[in-house]
């Protein structure tokens, strides 16, 4: 099996503290309610009429993607894929749509956003990304699964670029929903733009960051969403400081090590 490293062309994360991109961290403005209140100028240089209408998971995915793609347009749109881990699906939008049914006027715009895959739609439309998409709306470690699948698609030669996304709208919004998950967490999103080895060199801010997946060893268990969020935070922190990292991972979807090499 081809296990070549893939290049990290760019990244972003959006969390309770602010917005992280290569070489930059921006805190939320005073009065801004964190990720759920992210604003278009913080994401895109020009107006995009749909931005304000996006449901929360879609807005988080679009924002994280747009930040990672800033200055890093896909080399070939038909050879660029989007792989999204979205463990809680679109439950907040489901609840909003249900209210619109109860109100007697079901909203077509909200209905289309009740699909977890809705989170990739505006990314594809705005950034003209036309390759394969896979939406992992749960299961074992959806981010690691999306990362593994995206890396393997790059290694297979089908793709030149892969956008790996993770979106978790948190739990505060739907405490009363019929969900078995009763943990508390805030909204979070991140994006990794990965390139095949044949892709042009990465931007200066990430001079030679690469990721290797090694399927060996007896790694740590990664059984909960909280564990996966911690893993993603470590990965983003390492990218931000250009530190190398080797994280042991054991989930159903991936067993081995995620190795990040920065120099």
């Amino acid at each position: 099996m081809n296990n070549a490293a893939v290049t990290v062309r760019s990244f972003s994360s959006i969390d309770g503290a602010g917005i992280t991109t290569p070489g930059s961290f921006v805190s939320w403005e005073s009065g801004q309610a964190g990720p759920r209140d992210i604003r278009r100028p913080q994401v895109l240089p020009a107006p995009y009429i749909s931005f304000g209408k996006l449901a929360l998971p879609d807005k988080l995915a679009f924002s994280a993607s747009s930040l990672a793609l800033r200055g890093n347009a896909p080399i070939n749109p038909e050879n660029t894929g989007i792989f999204l881990g979205i463990p809680r699906g679109s439950l907040s939008t489901d609840l909003l749509y249900r209210e619109s049914i109860r109100g007697g006027t079901p909203s077509p715009a909200l209905f289309s956003a009740t699909l977890p895959s809705s989170a990739v739609t505006d990314i594809a439309i705005y950034h003209r990304i036309k390759g394969p998409d896979v939406v992992f709306a749960g299961g074992d470690a959806p981010f690691c699964t999306a990362l593994q699948y995206g890396v393997m698609m790059l290694q297979s030669g089908r793709l030149i670029d892969a956008l790996i996304l993770f979106v978790d709208e948190g739990t505060a919004i739907f405490r009363n929903a019929a969900s078995a998950d009763k943990t508390t967490s805030s909204p979070y999103a991140c994006a990794l733009l990965l390139g095949a080895c044949s892709a042009p060199p990465p931007p200066l801010s990430l001079q030679s960051a690469s990721i290797t997946l090694e399927r060996i060893g007896t790694p740590d268990d990664l059984s909960s969403l909280e564990d996966e969020r911690k893993l993603i935070s470590r990965l983003i922190a390492a990218l931000r400081t250009a530190a190398s990292l080797r994280i042991p991972v054991s989930s159903g979807g991936f067993k081995g090590y995620i190795s990040l090499h920065c120099s």
């Binding site: 699906g89 977890p116 998409d133 709306a137 299961g139 959806p142």
Partner: peptide, 26 residues
């Protein structure tokens, strides 16, 4: 309503102990 929870339920009903569970919603 979470697909993640439904996947666990299907796995339990069918008696499968997967090496890996994925939920795909395209």
């Amino acid at each position: 309503p979470l697909l993640a929870d439904q996947a666990k339920q299907v796995s339990r009903i069918t008696g499968i102990t997967p090496a890996s569970t994925m939920v795909i919603s395209n």
